[in-house]
Simulated scan of single mutants.
Amino acid sequence: MSATALLPGVLHLLVRVRQPGAGSGDCYQLLLGTRRPPAAYDALADPRTAALLLERLRRPGRTGRLTFVREGWAGGYAGTGLPARPLAAEQSHTSVVYGDRFVLKVFRRVHPGPSPDLEVPSALARAGGDRVPPPLAWFETSALTDERGSPATLGVLSPYLADAADGRRLAAEALAARTDFTPYARALGRATADLHETLRRALPVTVLRAPQSAALAAAMTARLAAAAAAVPALRPYRARLGETFAAVAELGSAGRTWRAQRVHGDLHLGQTLRGSRSGRWSFVDFEGEPELPPPARRRPHPVTRDVAGMLRSFTYAAPGAPSWADRCGAAYCAGYAERSGTDPREEAALLRAYVADRAVHEVVYEAGNRPGWLGVPLGTIADLAG
């Protein structure tokens, strides 16, 4: 689809992959090193070629159909260069860390227009938020644009929180050591409320009334139908889960409204970082659910959606210890209420629907990727179905 000689020894490719009957297909980004003839290789896995990419990000401008943008970063650093190393985490992108100062996230699958993982952190930085590392530089391409002509985001450079550990790891360590995680969960609830408040200031807010509530319930019901068709183990619970979703539409018809805004969209412990010295929680990875198109990821939701995602994450952290997950969930909601003035548990019907919707999504994922974990979301669904 597109090829650019990005730097000496680095070739940038955009490749369109079409499956039979799958429409226009998906676009994937490849950065190939060419310094080792006769075969090309992953340029991001080689510290030398990865360092060349950081050097290019220091200099705004264009190379072919690629544009490099710098914002809030002087572009310089002490010494002759920063060593580059790729992160080995299982992700839908490739991340390269430069000298414990910067991290570059390069998207493997790219979509037309700006990535939510650039759009949201940029808006939060402009609004004065301090819970999300701000974008320092990025690169994009005019070879793939949305309906407004906006270029596709290819990679984003941000500060690297070298002293931070992700919430999933901290939870696992607490479980292994049998230490109390509820203070961490409570502080994480307060941090989530801070994030949502800044998102309210930074990006548009709307209200879900009866038509929007009905549409939300219908979308959840449609996802349930598709999941039950794919995973037969869901079928015995379909009717009761449908009632859970219908309750949201019924509340809307009775005049109940909910404020909707941009949210994280895929919030769980693995998307959080806690500084070992500061003790502050931060949030990363605002791409949303990778299988959804960007317009769906940008759709406003009640903040309850993020809360439901975190409650499900506590369950996943301790699948054999439901009381641990319940205690952490209660502490998280209490911390959220302390900072926001509103306890998410007071929206019982909406929270229940979002938890069920998340668990349905997990059933499909586990059935296709980790069948041994299928019992985790199915256990939640059985509880929700009574």
Rank of each mutant, 00 (worst) to 15 (best):
A359G: 01
A228T: 12
E119Q: 04
L384M: 10
G242V: 15
R345N: 12
G368E: 11
K105Y: 09
L251V: 02
A152D: 06
H301P: 00
P83L: 04
S278I: 07
F283W: 06
V120W: 15
A325I: 10
A331W: 01
V303F: 14
R358G: 13
L175S: 08
A226L: 12
S213H: 03
R59W: 03
E291C: 02
W281V: 07
M1K: 13
A39N: 04
R223Q: 15
L32K: 06
A228D: 13
G288T: 08
Y41T: 01
R352K: 14
V110G: 08
F283K: 08
D163N: 00
P293M: 14
R339C: 01
E346H: 13
E287M: 09
V207Q: 02
A349G: 10
S92A: 15
T67R: 12
T304R: 04
M310K: 08
S95A: 13
E366N: 03
R299Y: 14
T63N: 09
G9N: 09
P204F: 05
R168L: 09
L6H: 04
P300R: 06
L11S: 06
D266T: 08
S276P: 12
A229G: 15
A359H: 04
A217V: 09
V284A: 02
A249V: 11
Y77I: 03
G25T: 08
Q91F: 14
A50Y: 02
A50P: 01
G279R: 06
P371F: 09
P300N: 10
W281K: 02
R223K: 15
A254H: 12
D357S: 11
R169G: 00
Y332L: 13
L269D: 10
Y41W: 00
A5C: 05
G275V: 00
G309Y: 06
A89Q: 14
A40P: 01
G99Q: 00
A330L: 10
G270C: 05
S95K: 03
E197I: 10
R345C: 11
G372T: 12
L53Y: 01
T198V: 10
F314G: 09
V132F: 11
V248E: 06
R238L: 10
P134I: 00
R58D: 02
A171V: 06
W373P: 05
G33T: 09
L53P: 00
D357H: 09
W373D: 04
S115C: 13
T145P: 00
T198E: 03
L241P: 01
L203D: 07
F286S: 12
S276Y: 01
C27T: 15
L14I: 02
D266Y: 05
A225K: 13
P377L: 07
V97F: 04
L234T: 03
H196C: 04
A385G: 05
L44Q: 02
G375K: 13
A353C: 03
